[in-house]
Design a protein around this nucleic acid. Structure first.
Lengths: 223, 223
DNA sequence: AATTCGCATACTGTATACAAACTGCAATGA
DNA sequence: TCATTGCAGTTTGTATACAGTATGCGAATT
């Protein structure tokens, strides 16, 4: 049992959170020395953490110039969401017949828990995790670990932009309603309708993000 | 232009080749010290190389026990090939209408070059690269870099097993014929038929590998 | 005045050195 | 006899130290 965590892993996890949380804008250089001081470790685990994040697509290494946070073009964002549609409808279709009552209960619990958090005082920081947990709960019975891993990758890459959208719009309620709808269709075992809803669910999120980015592009600096 | 390569990258590239080439059987421990001596570098770039390979799914880290080469179950191999079918038919469909004469010429050149190599004295070491280059040439016009990257990941993970199959069977000629057929259908712009052929092309390779693995499982030790 | 060259600076990439953790075996005790 | 504990040896994970490369500014040249 690997309950132990290396410093490199700790730095990677925390730094991922900071990047996804928007602390660093796209293209900013991440100086190893500074990060090492931040975490009170040497530069070695910092480098290893940055390498991990590179493989996740969150930073890019430039030779002898270190790591920079990545910024995705609108085209790439569209591509990522198209891939999510392709892969997530694929697993949902495979999972939906194998969904047991326990699975459905689990998904519902996550959903209700999130409903509560939303009503009480909605902090968005945790939303990504809730959202991902709910989707994974529906996908779990498919027993396609490699596929889920790819989906997880895609989510990580697009996560920053999803959060950005949530901050500036009131999309959460709509997404939440769609989640309830998705759960109901899954319960009924209606694969076609469920996949259709999932597809529009993802696509509309994408369009919202793209619209926001293009809006921003018109007003380059609002500071 | 980053024509420069760090030692860590060099080690990663070479070590990947060795793993895919079958030098290490599944589950063998890769000791950092030994590798460092092999490449005449310190353990730092070796560790970074291993981290890169971990993100590619070729090795796994166990806390304080180092990196071990991974071994895929039959179920995971099947899953990887199913994903390849899903993603590769997806890009091919997107690419096929945009294929220019130059693109087709490029794919054909790769194919002919490989035909020659096969006739003259077929060494399989390069086959993976040829194969991948041909497929990528057909997919290029889709202009879906993220998707191609995922496909590349899947190919890397399954590469060892493809090579294994090629060593023990005479599947290369058949694959080569299918490649020619694929090129012809692409030239005609027949997306449906091309995707169908691609699908069976991938699926049959998968079945060949699974059959070989199950054959092996019956005769655990042939040394 | 504009451009190019050279140097100083800062940061990365890697080697070396050290500390902590895991493994295996032997000795002890029930 | 079998399980448990402690120790030695080995290997990893990380800190420190050093070498090499990119960037920016100023001087020299046209």
């Amino acid at each position: 049992m690997a309950t132990y965590k290396t410093r490199a892993q700790f730095v990677a996890d925390d730094l991922r959170g900071r990047i996804l949380g928007g602390e660093f804008k796209g293209g900013t250089q991440l100086r190893q020395d500074a990060l090492a001081k931040d975490y009170d470790v040497s530069r070695i685990p910092v480098r290893e953490a940055l390498l991990t994040l590179e493989s996740e697509g969150l930073v890019e290494f430039h030779a002898h110039r270190g790591a920079f946070t990545t910024e995705l073009s609108v085209a790439k964002i569209r591509e990522l969401f198209d891939l999510r549609v392709l892969l997530e409808t694929y697993v949902l279709r495979h999972a939906i017949n194998g969904l047991t009552d326990t699975d459905l209960k689990k998904a519902e619990d996550i959903l209700l828990k999130y409903d509560q958090a939303l009503n009480s005082g909605g902090d968005i920081d945790n939303w990504s995790e809730y959202n991902f947990a709910f989707h994974q709960a529906l996908y779990a019975p498919a027993e396609l670990p490699e596929t889920l891993s790819l989906i997880s990758q895609l989510n990580t890459k697009s996560d920053r932009y999803i959060r950005m959208q949530l901050v500036y719009t009131q999309e959460i309620e709509k997404a939440e309603q769609e989640h309830h709808g998705l759960l109901e269709l899954a319960r009924q075992g209606d694969a076609d309708k469920a996949c259709e809803l999932l597809k529009t669910h993802i696509q509309e999120a994408c369009e919202g993000i793209v619209a926001l980015l293009e809006e921003r592009a018109k007003q380059p600096e609002t500071s």
